[in-house]
Amino acid sequence: MQSDNEKQSAVFVRAEGVLLARGARAAAAYFAANAAGFGERALRLGHLAWASPVYEVLGQSDRVLANRLAYLALRGMSEDRIAELAQEYFDNILRERILEGGLELIRRARREGKRVVVIADSLAQVMAPLVAQLRIVDDYVCNHLEIRDGKATGRLVPPVVGGHDSAVWAATYAQEHDLDLARCSAYVSHGPDLLLLSRVGQPCAVNPDYTLRRAARDSRWPVMDYHV
C-alpha cells in the first residue's frame, strides 16, 4: 500500500458545461429530430418538448431523472441509427462546441501529472468519438442506453450518471486506482456535482448553474466562467 504522499492524483471533469457546450438534452433532440420517418420525429420531439422544462428544473438538483426523461425520447430507435447519428452529431455539432477553456484545464492537469477522468451525462456512442479525438482523457464514465433486440428500450443502464452518485463513483474510482482524493481536483458545472466537489481537495465550479453557483459561493469554492 502506498503512503498518501506517493499516491497519484487525478482531475475529475464534468463533460457537459466544462468541456462541451452541449448537454444530453441537445443530443437527445438531435437523435429525435433525425429518427426514421416524419411521424416518429414529431412524436419524439414532442416528448422532448414537454420533458424540457422538467429537465431544466430537475437538472439543478438531480440529473438522473432528467437524463432518464431526455433519453426516453429514444425509445424504439435502432442501435444502428443511434450509432450513426451519434457519430454525425459529434462530427457536425459537438466537434465545434468543445470548449477551449475546458481543454486548457485538462492540459494543465496533464502537465501537472494528473490522471484525467471525464464524467459525462452523454451516451457512450457520443463520448467514444470525443474521447478518441481528444486523446488526453485517461478514463471516462458516461451513460449507456439499454438495447434489446437491436433497439433502445428508452431506459438507461444503471448506474445512471448525472446525480449525486458521481461523488461515490469518484471515491470508488480513486480507491481502485490508488488515488488520493485530497490531492485530486474537480471541475464541474451542475448542482448534483456538489458532493463531488466537497470530496476533492481542489474543487472548482465551472460555468455553474444557479444551484452550484450558490453552493460555491457559500462554500467559498473558486468559480470559473468562460464562454459556453
Partner: peptide
C-alpha cells in the same frame, strides 16, 4: 440480419452519402 435492420442500414447509408 432482419429485413428491418437491412432497410435501416440502407437508409442510414443513403443519409450518410447525401450528407
Amino acid at each position: 440480419c432482419s429485413v428491418g435492420r437491412a432497410a435501416e442500414l440502407i437508409v442510414l447509408s443513403h443519409r450518410r452519402h447525401f450528407r
